[in-house]
């Protein structure tokens, strides 16, 4: 068996003088959906920002595809195939859907194949093709989420890190987005999925980590989590 695609070992990170992550270890194997659950403000987004290089690692190590990447710049990490789809989408508001997607293929390698990649994204999200010329700020919440996902796929992604894909969406739309995410798994992408709401990920994630106060307090499969009433009620209020 080959090594997992992404390996975090004792990752510490934070902002200025506040340490948010206190030694997080986890692995994302190729083609699997790994989920990180936890209440707001306990380091889930910080974890993704640290992996993508927006935040400096303060301790521990991060390996991707066998290489240590924790000193790399953001653009090098994106170039290696780690794509971070940030919380709240952060689409480029004054640009059209198509311009947003093309920016996803900004790096030279992806830029060369952006035509083919655009077709691929339009196949996965036909709605984006319909909205191609529309300015992103006028999209609905669900469409914006699709655009953020599609924009991430425009690069040569191997690992998708998705931060709270259900945030602020109606249940029906959330269901649609999760159908998309399961579709991406079938396409062969490895996915690191961050959520606050455990019900969302139970049927999608292969393995679940619970984060509380910046460290992993529980991990196991979805079935194990469902059976474990005390963990659910202690950490997730479910």
């Amino acid at each position: 068996m080959s090594a997992p695609l992404l390996v975090l070992d004792g990752v510490c990170s934070g902002y200025d003088d506040t340490m948010v992550l206190q030694g997080v270890s986890l692995e994302v194997p190729e083609g699997k959906v790994i989920s990180v659950l936890g209440p707001n403000g306990h380091g889930k987004s910080t974890l993704l920002r640290t992996i993508s290089g927006l935040l400096r690692l303060r301790g521990g190590s991060i390996h991707f595809d066998g290489q240590q990447i924790d000193r790399w710049r953001v653009d090098q990490i994106v170039g290696a195939g780690i794509v971070h789809i940030p919380q709240g989408d952060l689409v480029f508001p004054q640009m059209t859907v198509k311009e947003n997607l093309y920016l996803g293929a900004y790096l030279a390698d992806a830029h060369k194949r952006r035509g083919a990649q655009l077709e691929h994204v339009y196949r996965l999200f036909p709605r984006l093709k319909e909205r191609e010329g529309q300015v992103a700020s006028t999209l609905s919440g669900g469409e914006r989420r699709m655009l953020a996902l599609g924009r991430g796929l425009m690069s040569r992604a191997r690992l998708l890190m998705i931060d709270e894909p259900s945030l602020g969406l109606a249940p029906l739309i959330t269901e649609e987005i999760y159908d998309n995410i399961r579709g991406l798994k079938e396409e062969g992408y490895a996915i690191l999925l961050v959520e606050e709401n455990p019900e969302r990920v139970l049927e999608t994630a292969d393995h679940i980590h619970l984060i509380d106060h910046g460290s992993v307090v529980w991990q196991g499969s979805a079935r194990e989590l469902e059976a474990d009433d005390s963990t659910l009620s202690t950490y997730l209020g479910a």
């Binding site: 993508s52 927006l54 710049r73 953001v74 653009d75 994106v78 170039g79 794509v83 971070h84 940030p86 952060l90 689409v91 480029f92 508001p93 004054q94 640009m95 311009e99 093309y102 920016l103 996803g104 900004y106 790096l107 924009r151 690069s155």
Partner: peptide, 20 residues
């Protein structure tokens, strides 16, 4: 030029596209 506009509109997201 697109990268300049992207950076102006949404600096974090621009970085995540690989824009320096």
């Amino acid at each position: 030029g697109m990268a300049i506009r992207a950076t102006a509109q949404q600096p974090d997201a621009a970085q995540l596209m690989g824009i320096r």
